[in-house]
Structures are given as structure tokens and as C-alpha cells.
């Protein structure tokens, strides 16, 4: 296993030497995907062992640091709100009128039985801040030409040591992302599809997360509407707004 890692790293450095434009690709992806702020409505489809559930929510986010999500349906979740500020996360429940801070160990728990943990939602740094990227090659993914990027962590405090990203060569939208452990073990896979143009950007409207170590068919995230660069009042990102 360790040998694989060494080889993997060696390949990456080799690739880095020959393809200097990996960072450029990521920057383009970044420009495409991120915005000053955005508001989107989405459905999360969670496949449990017994049943499949769909949870609808509306999210407001500014950069990567602040976000506010309100769950709309089903009735059970309606009115539950989640606030993220930097590396802190609070959840408000209307039924108990309580604000609970999710911290420490709880962050590693799955969100509503999905393949995503609270922590996955908190990771807000840009890929280029965390990873050294290299272009590993160009290939076809379905009928799209893609760049394959290999990313290796350059900071210590990162959940996934390495990533592999398939970026649409024309639209600069990620189409597939694989997350690896230090040993090279594949841990999670994310697939992006249903790429649409919104306000002049290309954006994947369907994202499927899959924890590769667990059985099951993963969690599907569908964006039903998305708007960029809107007026979002600042007070929304405060604990006081959770109770409103």
C-alpha cells in the first residue's frame, strides 16, 4: 500500500513538471463554480437500507465561510435551520426552540443519514489553498473531454490527503471527484452531472456523493434552482436569525 502512495506521489510530481497549467484549470473551475454569494434550492435524495427520502432546502451562502440553510420539507424537517460561520455549526430546531452547536465528535456524524458528514459541509477552503495540483492527463468521460487532475495536500489539517478530479475540458466544471486516504485508499467518490448554464456559468445541477467504504447507493443532491450574486442581508448569518 505504501509503495502505491509513493508511486502516486511520484507520478504527480512528474506530471507537475510537464503540465504547469493544472493550477490554471482549477482557477477556471473556481471562477466558474464560486461566486460572491448564491442562493439555491435543492433536494437531497438519501437512499437508506429500507427507504429513500427526499429533503428539500433553501441555502444562502457567501463565499465559502458563511452559509445558512433552511429545510422546507418533509414536514418533519420543516423549519430546521443550519448556520455555518467559519468552522462553527449551529442547528436550530423549531419544535424545541433550541440552538444546538455541533462540535467535536458530532461533526463526523452523517447529516440526516446521508453520505455526507457535517464536517464535509464545513470544509470551506479553496482546493488551491489546500492542494498542490498537477495535470495527470486528458481523457474522455462519457462523451466529454476531461482534464484529469491529481491533487495532493500541501497542508496538514486536511480530511483527504489526495484527490483526483475530472474537469470538463470545455466548460471547466468538475464531472467527477475521488477522495483518497493517505494510503491511497479510495474513500469517497462524487459525480457531477446535468451541467447547465446559469447566469453565464456552467454549473452541475446534480451531484451524487458516495462513501466508497459503505454499502449503499449514495446520496443524490439535486439543485432545483440557483441564483448567483444576489442581495443577501448580513443579519441572516447570525444566530439570532436562526430563531426567526
Amino acid at each position: 500500500m505504501r509503495k502505491v502512495v509513493v508511486l502516486f506521489v511520484a507520478l504527480i510530481s512528474f506530471a507537475a513538471f510537464t503540465s504547469p497549467d493544472a493550477k490554471e484549470i482549477l482557477d477556471k473551475v473556481d471562477r466558474n463554480m464560486s461566486s460572491k454569494n448564491r442562493i439555491f434550492e435543492s433536494s437531497m435524495i438519501i437512499h437508506g437500507r429500507r427507504a429513500t427520502r427526499t429533503i428539500n432546502s433553501i441555502s444562502y451562502s457567501v463565499g465559502n465561510k458563511k452559509s445558512f440553510t433552511e429545510y422546507l420539507s418533509p414536514a418533519r424537517e420543516q423549519g430546521t435551520k443550519m448556520l455555518k460561520l467559519e468552522d462553527k455549526l449551529w442547528i436550530y430546531s423549531p419544535s424545541t426552540d433550541r440552538i444546538i452547536q455541533i462540535s467535536g465528535h458530532m461533526l463526523r456524524q452523517s447529516v440526516m443519514g446521508s453520505d455526507l458528514s457535517y464536517e464535509d459541509m464545513l470544509d470551506d477552503r479553496k482546493l488551491t489553498e489546500v492542494y498542490t495540483s498537477t495535470l495527470a492527463g486528458k481523457e474522455k468521460l462519457g462523451d466529454r473531454d476531461v482534464f484529469v487532475l491529481d491533487l495532493v495536500a500541501k497542508v496538514d489539517d486536511v480530511a483527504y490527503f489526495a484527490q483526483k478530479i475530472w474537469v470538463d475540458a470545455e466548460r471547466f466544471v468538475p464531472l467527477k471527484q475521488e477522495l483518497f486516504a493517505k494510503s491511497g485508499q479510495l474513500l469517497k467518490r462524487t459525480e457531477f452531472s446535468d451541467v447547465k448554464q446559469v447566469q453565464g456559468r456552467w454549473f452541475p445541477m446534480t451531484i451524487v456523493y458516495k462513501d466508497m467504504l459503505k454499502e449503499g447507493s449514495g446520496t443524490e443532491f439535486r439543485i432545483t434552482s440557483i441564483k448567483f450574486d444576489q442581495e443577501i442581508p448580513e443579519y441572516l448569518f447570525s444566530k439570532a436569525s436562526l430563531k426567526k
Binding site: 480530511a159 486516504a181 494510503s183 485508499q185 467504504l213
Partner: peptide, 16 residues
């Protein structure tokens, strides 16, 4: 047996 853990920095690692 495959095990997954997080090192001191919280980085995931897995090994057989």
C-alpha cells in the same frame, strides 16, 4: 480487514 482512521491532523487514512 479494512480500517479507516484519522491521523493527528484529522486527515483520513485507510489501510488493510
Amino acid at each position: 480487514l479494512l480500517i479507516r482512521w484519522r491521523d493527528k491532523n484529522g486527515t483520513f487514512d485507510a489501510r488493510e
